[in-house]
């Protein structure tokens, strides 16, 4: 199954969609078949049916949808580091082991997610067509030359950081969707999938921290009241939009006391909490730039 066909489906308005009153129930009903080994062969068809039936924005994606979304992000990251490591004279010797460690993790994530998707009877998404210049396939985007020797600091690391920080946000944004599939998935599969997603999420955050240390910005995202993006790269403002949030669980955390004051600064309040992005928000950021958008 090609994930981008799904996206295309979601982008369309479905005039035949008559079961929108409870799309979540429809989604869960379909995913129930994943739990049953005898029904595994029918899964891809069930999934396709489900997607067509519940394209409403309120629909909760199935576990396989979520895993394929994660896999697509990992393809993007793994391919990026594979190209970077292969590029002649791009990565300075002092940083090569850092980048290779991250490369290994991302490729391991691809393998792991592929295996999990297969094990629950799903069909892994195919590798998306990518353009690391963010040029939607033109190879002529704003990050053109990012794999060229001499552009490591100016381009490669900036794309790396955007990918890592966005990856953290993307995984975080799926936690509640995985929870919404708990009853349908069953306790064991739920625990496995959620824990794995949280564990990959933590590794992406470790990577983001390391890349930030190489670049020389704070290892955490230190936003201002009006701007989430602390990287100084205006092109990725959208990837950090919302990181300036200081309201957590209904509490404005700047009103809470700090070490030496009765309130907390915006810098600390934003750095202490990372913010999620929804699947739609992430695709809006990637499709048509880093991931080539299929022409209809």
């Amino acid at each position: 199954m090609n994930l981008f066909n799904i996206i295309d489906e979601i982008e369309k308005i479905d005039p035949d969609f008559t079961d929108k009153l409870n799309p979540r129930r429809a989604a869960i009903k379909n995913i129930t078949s994943f739990g049953s080994k005898v029904a595994l062969a029918a899964v891809p068809f069930a999934l396709g049916t489900m997607i067509k039936r519940s394209v409403a924005q309120t629909a909760v994606p199935s576990v396989v949808d979520i895993l394929n979304y994660a896999l697509t992000l990992e393809y993007l990251e793994a391919g990026f580091y594979n190209a970077g490591v292969a590029a002649p004279n791009l990565i300075p010797a002092s940083d090569l082991n850092y980048i290779k460690d991250i490369q290994d993790d991302e490729n391991n994530h691809v393998t792991f997610l592929t295996n999990v998707i297969k094990s629950v009877g799903g069909t892994p998404a195919t590798v998306p067509a990518v353009d690391y210049t963010a040029g939607n396939g033109s190879g002529n985007g704003p990050f053109k030359g990012l794999f060229t020797a001499g552009n490591y600091n100016s381009l490669f690391l900036k794309v790396a950081l955007a990918f890592e920080d966005t990856g953290v946000r993307a995984y975080k944004g799926q936690a509640e969707n995985i929870l919404a599939n708990k009853a349908a998935a069953g306790a064991d599969l739920y625990k496995t999938v959620l824990t794995a997603a949280l564990s990959i999420h933590a590794v992406e955050a470790r990577h983001a921290s390391a890349i930030r240390q190489i670049i020389g910005v704070t290892p955490w995202i230190t936003s201002t009241a009006s701007k989430g993006n602390d990287t100084g790269v205006a092109l990725v403002d959208g990837n950090y939009a919302g990181e300036e949030n200081v309201t957590q669980g209904g509490v404005n955390v700047t009103t809470l006391k700090s070490y030496s004051a009765s309130t907390t600064s915006v810098a600390v309040a934003t750095a202490a909490f990372d913010e999620p992005l929804s699947m739609g928000q992430v695709y809006d950021l990637l499709l048509g730039s880093f991931i080539v958008k299929a022409t209809p």
Partner: peptide, 16 residues
């Protein structure tokens, strides 16, 4: 759950 996620990634940044 999301709040835990918001915090754990910051802990992971610290850990790294």
């Amino acid at each position: 759950l999301t709040l835990a996620g918001k915090i754990v990634s910051v802990e992971a940044r610290h850990a790294a």
